[in-house]
Design a protein around this nucleic acid. Structure first.
Lengths: 259, 259
DNA sequence: ACCAATGGTTCAAATAATGAACCAATCGGG
DNA sequence: CCCGATTGGTTCATTATTTGAACCATTGGT
């Protein structure tokens, strides 16, 4: 791994539960030498990618990433395109919806919308990293990703976030086959207990899968009517979003929502 | 300059006018060796910071920056805090408003709001890099930045974006002194012709200047009434935003809007 | 058919990254 | 109030990576 990759991989350790990281923690998390981490963080800081909090001397992400994100949106306005789709999908389904995007070998939830109807709803945070095997979004992506990518994901140990999480690669493989047939993925409590999620893949201009659009509902509200309504609305919303960003579905993507 | 800094500095060449850059262009822009740029971009691509467009083989910013930006906002929610302030300021002044943030040695406009009142308005793009000497925002920042920073900025050649741009360092220095006295900066046509801008600095928890809040109006609409109303509204909005993000004004910041 | 430009690749030479050990300061018990 | 443990930060000889001139294959324009 090159020096640049090492530096950038340090940034992957930031997440919602760890917005600030000290030098020692980062050294442990990365497995790199302390002096190396120190110097790399110094360079990241010079370029504005991280900044150091005076008091604790711990690091947090810097302002430079805001500019880059704004330019990324100018290049590929997928987040702004998603907002309307998410809002409408939340209204129609009465549940929380979110968009997750593939970032290398990670899947991160980056935009969401809540439904006004219910007092209880599934809460979301942007930039949360999702597991592939334990979320509907992850399965939707795997169903239409390259075979090599799927193998790489399943070769890693599959973490169990809840007692319901499927951690057997063979079971996950069967789920993926079902996703390919139906064009839609499901997960019941695989990431958060009591959450029933549906998801469909989103495709780019080169027919490659970019991420997934998902509806997350409390299991208790999953009536027979919802089980029919959500896949239908989700399928349509997925096609709409893919189209809005100039994407094209691959030939093997089902054109009608299957049961 | 370390390898990491070189790689990250490649990203600074992306902007609204150059959302995609080919290998040769990037080599020229950066002044680095072609093989170096090629390898560095390869590493940036591996980490999802850039991606390559299949057809043209040129590079654009990658999806990874979106995740980092979302986390930065979770750490320091300055953009979300600014939106309400900008909206209200646009309503009160009837003109376009925007927030720019300091990113190392660059000042980038990152959030804006339009007023509904007028058919003609100053248009803004997020992530545009502003000059320090030719914009009200830049002058507002310089007025309350460290002396060393001001010297570094004025030591560089001052580009003239319009015939009205002040490029004499001594004149700019005098403008900065005036900004310190009044607590508000002005620029008439220094960045775009026919645009009259006012700006106030925004401060962080450590009393350091983070960026500037600005009102940009067509020169033709700058009546005597507006010349009084804008500084007053802007001063109040700046204090409000500084406060909302937990910032503190330095002791030498004027507490009342001066003429 | 040509020339100039593009993206991509090679390999010896030059340079930068590395990591074990060390320092000073701080923290939290007992 | 002292002690051990932990923190951020620094050093420098060794090591491994980066570098860049030159080269190749394609593409596009004239």
């Amino acid at each position: 791994m090159g020096t640049v990759s090492k530096a950038l991989s340090l940034l992957t350790h930031f997440n919602h539960g760890r917005l600030e990281i000290g030098l020692s923690d980062l050294t442990r998390l990365s497995g790199l030498n302390k002096a190396t981490v120190y110097r790399l963080m110094g360079e990241l800081q010079e370029q504005g990618f991280v900044e150091q909090i005076e008091a604790a001397r711990s690091y947090r992400l810097g302002p430079q990433v805001l500019r880059l994100a704004a330019l990324r949106e100018a290049s590929v306005p997928i987040l702004s395109a998603s907002r309307r789709v998410l809002r409408e999908l939340s209204e129609v389904t009465g549940e929380t919806t979110h968009l997750s995007l593939l970032q290398g070998d990670q899947l991160a939830s980056l935009s969401h919308a809540y439904a006004p109807q219910h007092a209880t709803k599934v809460m979301m945070e942007d930039a949360e990293v999702l597991t592939f095997h334990g979320t509907a979004s992850g399965l939707a992506v795997l169903g239409f990703a390259e075979a090599g990518f799927v193998e790489a994901v399943l070769a890693r140990p599959l973490e169990a976030r809840t007692p319901q999480t499927q951690t057997d690669p063979e079971v996950v493989r069967a789920q993926i086959t079902e996703v390919q047939r139906a064009g839609i993925a499901q997960s019941v409590g695989g990431f958060e207990a009591e959450v029933h999620s549906h998801a469909v893949p989103i495709f780019g201009p080169d027919r490659a899968v970019l991420g997934a659009l998902a509806v997350a509902a409390p299991s208790s509200r999953m009536s027979a009517a919802q089980r029919r309504a959500i896949p239908q609305a989700l399928h349509a919303a997925g096609l709409a979003l893919t189209q809005r960003i100039g994407g094209v579905c691959p030939p093997d993507f089902p054109t009608v929502p299957a049961a």
